[in-house]
């Protein structure tokens, strides 16, 4: 009985971790690679949830399909935000304190705007895979977490391929590895960063759809994800995708075990506690090279 409970907790934790990877991959790009501490990333994920919700309710569209359709709009939004960020902070060399306050403000604005538009009620979407559960032996896989898990890993894999194979992807990696060297070769990191930040926000559209498939969403739950996403990026070693997926699954399992054995009200502390411990003892992450 106990081992069955344990197995199920681990299985659902792994699925949850896959979803966390989707929420985090955007931040791994913006914070891990571009050094932009985008605190508002979870708020964009919630925005993605609500855009999927609207398409689902009005047109009866599948939430994931709706999110895919929304990615160009999110890309443009991300590019616009980077444009402001660049002009106001990066160009002046003041991105530290003020840049963070800027994103903190954006987080707050997005959240309150959503509350004004939709109220504080929990919203959910309808899709065929939301009810049923897959049984493999004693272990249950709920389709509502299995589907996001699979698509999310596919998304991270696709981004990994994009980064390593395409010209633009390699340019983004170059910016993240040595921005100064790039400048000395008379390349402006600006355009590359614009595209990369756009991509990072575009991933939030999909992650938002996954979120609203997994659980009902209200505007302020985005805050719970701030700790999770930063913990995962830092734990995963700042911008490494494989490290990030591993860290996401680790956190998912840790949270799922805590929720199963101690009660769900303790699970927010898991992410933030893990984050504090990582920051204090292993700032380079689990797969990090330098200590």
């Amino acid at each position: 009985m106990f081992s069955e409970l344990l197995l199920n907790a681990i299985a659902s934790g792994v699925l949850l971790g896959g979803f966390y990877a989707a929420v985090t991959v955007g931040l791994a790009i913006s914070f891990g690679m571009l050094d932009i501490g985008n605190l508002a990333h979870p708020a964009f994920v919630i925005l993605g949830s609500f855009s999927a919700y609207i398409f689902n309710q009005r047109l009866g569209l599948d939430p994931i399909l709706a999110a895919l359709l929304m990615t160009p709009a999110f890309f443009v939004l991300g590019a616009a935000i980077y444009q402001v960020y660049f002009l106001a902070f990066e160009r002046r060399g003041e991105e530290g304190l003020r840049g963070l306050a800027f994103f903190f403000g954006i987080l707050f604005i997005t959240e309150v705007a959503l509350i004004l538009g939709f109220g504080v009620d929990y919203r959910f979407v309808e899709a065929r895979y939301i009810g049923p559960t897959l049984h493999v032996g004693d272990v249950d896989f709920a389709l509502r977490t299995l589907v996001p898990f699979v698509i999310s890993l596919a998304m991270v894999g696709a981004l990994q391929l994009f980064m390593s194979k395409t010209y633009m992807g390699r340019a983004i990696l170059a910016v993240s590895q040595d921005s100064l060297a790039l400048r000395l070769m008379s390349v402006r990191p600006y355009r590359v960063k614009l595209v990369a930040f756009g991509i990072s926000i575009a991933t939030a559209a999909l992650a938002g759809a996954f979120l609203i498939i997994i659980q009902p969403v209200e505007p302020s739950i985005g805050r719970d994800y701030i700790g999770r996403v930063f913990a995962i990026v830092v734990l995963g070693g700042m911008g490494s995708f494989p490290g990030m997926v591993l860290a996401a699954i680790l956190l998912g399992v840790a949270e799922s075990l805590t929720a199963t054995f101690y009660g769900p009200s303790w699970s927010p502390a898991v992410a933030f506690g893990l984050l504090l411990l990582t920051l204090a003892f292993r700032p380079a992450g689990i797969l990090g090279r330098r200590a």
């Binding site: 914070f31 501490g37 605190l39 530290g96 963070l100 701030i226 700790g227 930063f230 913990a231 830092v234 009200s265 303790w266 927010p268 502390a269 933030f272 506690g273 984050l275 504090l276 920051l279 700032p283």
Partner: peptide, 18 residues
């Protein structure tokens, strides 16, 4: 810098959970 700022946010949430 950023890491300290996020650490303080984490601290607040941990206290809140307790």
């Amino acid at each position: 810098g950023v890491f300290f700022a996020i650490g303080t946010l984490a601290l607040a949430i941990v206290v809140q959970t307790f």
